[in-house]
């Protein structure tokens, strides 16, 4: 299963990069989100895969008695997801705003607009 996840991580990165290189801002954001997902999955995978044993101490016990999933990557990814949301929403609003002002979705047309705004 790990191998399959590795393949998916590769796919997510490749797809994200490809979309990032497009001229349309919309596609760029899609790329950004794909890359984010890939990175999250990558970090998560580094904590190894453990089935059915979340890092939650059972009631009545004070320490883990069974194996448990690594909590550190989970905490990292959780933070990354939320921050990623902030970034994505900002990017989404940005393209909308740019479109409102300049009436274009094409990144290359943004090169010489300093004086227009």
């Amino acid at each position: 299963m790990e191998i399959l996840l590795v393949v998916i991580i590769g796919f997510l990165h490749a797809g994200g990069l490809y979309m990032l290189l497009r001229r349309s801002m919309f596609k760029m954001i899609i790329g950004l989100i794909l890359l984010g997902n890939g990175a999250n999955l990558l970090i998560f995978l580094l904590g190894r895969l453990v089935k059915g044993n979340p890092p939650v101490i059972e009631d009545g016990l004070k320490v883990f008695t069974d194996i448990y999933a690594d909590p550190v990557p989970q905490a990292l990814v959780l933070t990354a997801i939320v921050i990623g949301f902030g970034l994505q929403s900002f990017a989404i609003i940005l393209i909308k705003r740019v479109y409102n002002v300049l009436n274009t979705d094409d990144l290359d047309e943004l090169n010489s607009t300093d004086e227009e705004i």
């Binding site: 939320v82 949301f85 902030g86 929403s89 609003i93 909308k96």
Partner: peptide, 13 residues
């Protein structure tokens, strides 16, 4: 903070 930020983003849109 999460409620505030998320709602601000969505409402202003």
């Amino acid at each position: 903070v999460v409620i505030g930020a998320t709602l601000t983003i969505i409402f202003s849109i």
